[in-house]
Design a protein around this nucleic acid. Structure first.
Length: 928
RNA sequence: GGGCGGGUAGCUCAGCGGCAGAGCGUCUGCUUUACACGCAGAUGGUCGCAGGUUCGAUCCCUGUCCCGCCCACCA
């Protein structure tokens, strides 16, 4: 392990973060171990290695971060927490990337052959595997990724085969010939989910006539003229008077020697659209396919697998889809059947992987029956066995599963889990866990592979050893949490739910936590084309713009996508993993688009610096103090900071518990900076720092203050650890702490609201609030009048409530120290005479109004003071008016809850008082 | 066509019946023995628009206009 950085050095994330990963590994922080019997086992389903874009990206970093925050939190509460490494599944991105590499060489996978292609995919995965592993480590993520195998692991393949065979035995996996989505560019079938609809494509509606046998013609409209080669009917609405005379007649195909009927169909045909007559192509359109089934129509496939026309296309055979479209239109025009075109906006179905236009095609594929499994998965969420957060996604989940079609799982690709079926003579098929010995050499295994999401759907239990009844499986299934992006709710989450319930008889996880998608600062999706992709490692380690983007053009694009970063000079400084993690954790999960603002990371980087320096100060103030397990009786400031800490713990716990990590992060941030640093440490300084004569100002307060300071410091490091593992570990190793704590902060415990509950005191916080307001009032006056920082000013505090006077009198040292008053502030009853040149501020507190007088004679311009008072006066007037309107409006006093009315009256009285005082203050200011 | 979000300070976003909040930015003053990656203070909002419910609406309801996403359809 590298040397610890010296604490008096500036905070340097690179120095801090390089040392801890190995330490955690060696101390078993990442391992689930046996724990006390009452400790609930917690399992967070690990995400598979990236399989969407296949490269390192912010979305991946976000998922890693949020998963790891949850895992560290769970682990600190109950040690028995598992987030184990998985094995690779057949990530679809892998082959996409390799195919793109081939395309750059002007080749397709069919040019290099199956074996060579698969080898290239392996190579690519090994290369990226190293980078993924690095990113996991850098971000501090818990799983032992060195154990991750970037292979299609034997155990995983076994689980996939087992699942396939069982589904087949149960009649849920079947082979069928039907209309499916076919991508001619990838030359594979797709599931419905893998088809993206591109809206707003400009197309045209082409109209042409079919000759009706026995005379006349019928005009149809189409956006895909070439499909007319597969037409087997023309449909009209049964009630459409225009076509009544054609019912039962047949039309002649102009290019192929066949005739087909005119049918009536009220489902397919909308008489108001186009000509009211529809050409029917059962083999290449989903609606037409259904129509064909209703009328017993012939299905004529006109396409080859690569998108060229086949022999059924007659004279057009061999042409590509696009060429065929032009040729058909031209031929129809030549024969005099063309009837013109109209512009038409249409939606194009595109392949998610290749972007090619998807063609509906009749094909024989493997399908999984979904209806029964979907029903169970719906029920599990309805009855709360699994909770989806944020809850608004539940409806989306319901809608998807409620309308689900059978899942086409076979792919004509070469990378993936091969289907465990063997084809023999006469179309015989055998499904088995391994090739049956009795099969002769003429039997060949189905060349197709499974949809990558099929193996992913088994993830929660296949990674635990299923189908073996392993101890891990028994202990950790079902998992506690699954954390992932909402974009794969259907692809992954819903399918894990179905397969989990089906194969394990129970839900795969208790909670599903969905986060948003990371986009650039302007809200645009990150993509290589747009040039706005950020590698998280560049944010962690720092990088120049030149390194991140290749050329000047790209740099311009990049800076436009990150306006706040554009002003950062040459590039990103090294923010460090903790700052990146913390920032990612501060976006609320309801936020669907996470606009990554480097400036925000920078702000949080400053927070870490603050923590570093505050700890440095605290250690200095603590001196050689040793941890005491029994905190001594506490004074006011100590009670206050303990109360604030307890509240922060409660908020953080509730936040993490409800998957509002952002709330936990903000609670920790506010506590540490605004309470601990801004107030408590400043108050503790005069107590814990020796005076020039070497004695303490208030020796009686030293032990309790040191104990409290040590307590909240150590506690807040633990509170923040899941959000910023490296810096908290580094500092925690140096602060006083109980002997009972283990070697690493990561081993907990997490501060719980229960343990801190007793420290909460609303009364103490209210009094402290008053003190803070009084101090702020003096500071405001000083600042507004540009009083020299070193100048001491006389301060008088006037209040009528005896407890108030007593309280403030008890804190003269704090007031004097924090506002630089000339001697101790003077305490008086209200309403006395005031010296000329004195400003008056009115502080409204729950305990009543307080006047704060600051003597500024000779230090201040009259106009400034008058302006200040007028401003305060205006605000008071506004508030008084609002309250009077409320109190005066009919029904408020009668109908509003008594405590609300009471509160309003109190405020009103106190504001009137304040207004009166301000009036007097204004008179006084005239004398300045 | 159906559904789900969102529109709040210059920017990014919280809040969701009872005095409108944070971070970043801006302005002013300060190199104060933890921190200028800082401190103190200030500025800044018709809470998209119009109705309704309510004693009271940024918040609930209805309508409406923008923006985003998802699903379905598209001859």
């Amino acid at each position: 392990m590298t040397q610890s950085p010296a604490l008096d050095q500036p905070y340097d994330p690179a120095l801090v973060e390089s040392r801890w990963y190995g330490f955690w590994e060696s101390h078993g922080v990442f391992a689930a171990t046996d724990s006390p019997a009452d400790a609930r086992p917690v399992y967070v389903v690990p995400m598979p290695p990236p399989n969407v874009t296949g490269s390192l990206h912010m979305g991946h970093a976000l998922m890693t971060t949020l998963e790891d925050v949850l895992v560290r939190w769970h682990r600190m509460r109950t040690f028995n927490t598992l987030w184990q490494p998985g094995t690779d599944h057949a990530g679809i991105a892998t082959q996409t990337v390799v195919e793109r590499m081939l395309a750059r060489e002007g080749k397709t996978r069919h040019d290099v052959g199956r074996e060579a292609f698969v080898e290239r995919v392996w190579q690519w995965r090994r290369d990226t595997g190293d980078r993924i592993h690095l990113q996991q480590r850098v971000l501090g993520a818990s799983p032992d990724w060195s154990r991750t195998k970037f292979t299609m692991d034997a155990d995983m393949s076994r689980a996939v085969t087992e699942a396939f065979v069982r589904l087949h035995e149960q009649g849920l996996m079947y082979r069928a010939t039907r209309l499916i989505n076919w991508c001619p560019e990838c030359r594979t079938a797709l599931s419905d989910l893998e088809v993206d609809n591109e809206e707003g494509a400009n197309g045209e509606l082409f109209e042409f006539a079919y000759e009706v046998e026995g005379g006349g013609e019928i005009v149809v409209a189409t956006t895909r003229p070439e499909t007319m080669l597969g037409d087997t009917a023309v449909a009209v609405h049964p009630d459409d008077p225009r076509y009544t005379s054609f019912h039962g007649k047949r039309v002649k195909h102009p290019f192929v020697d066949r005739t087909f009927p005119i049918v009536t169909d009220a489902i397919l045909v909308d008489p108001k659209f186009g000509t009211g007559a529809v050409k029917v192509t059962p083999a290449h359109d989903f609606n037409d396919f259904a129509t064909g089934k209703r009328h017993g129509l012939e299905e004529i496939n006109i396409l080859n697998l690569d998108g060229t026309m086949n022999a059924n296309a007659g004279p057009f055979a061999g042409l590509d889809r696009k060429e065929a479209r032009r040729a058909v239109k031209k031929a129809l025009a030549e024969k005099g059947f063309a009837r013109g075109t109209k512009p038409h906006v249409l939606t194009l179905p595109r392949c998610q992987r290749s972007g090619g236009v998807v063609e509906p095609m009749i094909s024989t594929q493997w399908f999984v029956k979904m209806a029964a499994m979907a029903e169970k998965a719906l029920d599990a969420v309805r009855t709360g066995k699994t909770v989806i957060l944020p809850a608004e996604w539940t409806k989306t989940y319901d809608h998807f599963l409620g309308n689900i079609q059978d899942w086409c799982v076979s792919r004509q690709l070469w990378w993936g889990h091969q289907i465990p079926a063997w084809h023999g003579p006469d179309g015989k098929i055998v499904v088995a866990r391994e090739r049956p010995k009795e099969l002769g050499p003429e039997w060949t295994q189905d060349p197709d592979v499974l949809d990558t999401w099929f193996s992913s759907a088994l993830w929660p239990f296949s990674t635990l050893g299923w189908p073996e009844e392993t101890p891990a499986l028994k202990k950790f299934y079902p998992a506690s949490d699954l954390e992932t992006g909402y974009d794969i709710l259907f692809f992954w989450v819903a399918r894990m739910m179905m397969f989990g319930l089906h194969f394990m008889g129970d839900v795969p996880f208790r909670r599903v936590l969905l986060h948003g998608l990371v986009v650039d600062e302007t809200g645009e999706k990150m993509s290589k084309v747009k040039g706005n992709v950020i590698d998280p490692l560049d944010l962690v380690h720092g990088a120049t713009f030149e390194k991140m983007v290749p050329d000047a053009d790209a740099l311009t694009k990049f800076k436009k996508a990150y306006p706040s970063a554009a002003a950062m000079g040459a590039g990103f400084p090294a923010f460090g993993a903790d700052a990146v993690r913390f920032t990612l954790a501060t976006y609320p999960p309801s936020n669907k688009r996470i606009a990554l603002a480097p400036k925000r990371i920078e702000g949080n980087r400053h927070f870490l610096n603050k923590i570093w320096n505050a700890t440095r100060l605290a250690l200095d103030l603590l001196g050689d103090w040793k941890w005491m397990d029994e905190p001594p009786p506490k004074g006011f400031y100590n009670q206050w900071i303990r109360s604030r800490f307890a509240n922060a713990c409660a908020t953080a716990h509730d936040g993490l518990d409800a998957f509002r990590i952002d709330e936990a992060a903000h609670a920790a941030y506010r506590f540490f900076w605004n309470d601990l640093c801004d107030w408590y440490l400043e108050l503790a300084k005069p107590i814990l720092r020796k005076q020039t004569d070497g004695t303490f100002l208030r020796p009686d307060q030293v032990p309790e203050t040191r104990a409290t300071l040590a307590y909240v410091l150590e506690g807040s490091l633990r509170l923040m650890h899941p959000l910023m593992p490296f810096i908290t570990e580094e500092l925690w190793q140096r602060v006083p702490r109980p002997q009972s704590r283990k070697a690493s902060i990561a081993l907990g415990p997490y501060p719980t609201p229960d343990a801190e509950k007793e420290a909460i005191s609303a009364e103490v916080e209210a009094w402290m609030g008053t003190l803070q307001q009084v101090i702020s009032a003096v500071r405001t006056v000083r600042s507004e009048h540009d009083v020299d920082k070193k100048a001491d000013v006389p301060v008088a505090i006037r209040a009528d409530v005896p407890e108030m006077v007593a309280f403030l009198r008890g804190h003269v040292e704090a007031i004097r120290g924090l506002v630089r008053s000339k001697g101790d502030p003077v305490f008086e009853g209200r309403g006395g005479a005031r010296e000329a040149g004195t400003t008056v501020s009115i502080v409204t507190t729950p305990q009543g109004p307080v006047e704060v007088l600051v003597g500024l004679k000779g230090l201040v311009a009259k106009d400034d003071e008058l302006a200040r008072i007028d401003r305060e006066m205006k605000k008071a007037e506004k508030d008084v008016a609002a309250l009077e309107k409320r109190l005066g409006s009919p029904g408020f006093v009668d109908r509003a809850p008594p405590e609300v009315v009471e509160e309003a009256r109190k405020q009103h009285a106190s504001l009137l008082e304040a207004r009166a005082r301000l009036g007097e203050a204004r008179k006084l200011a005239e004398e300045l």
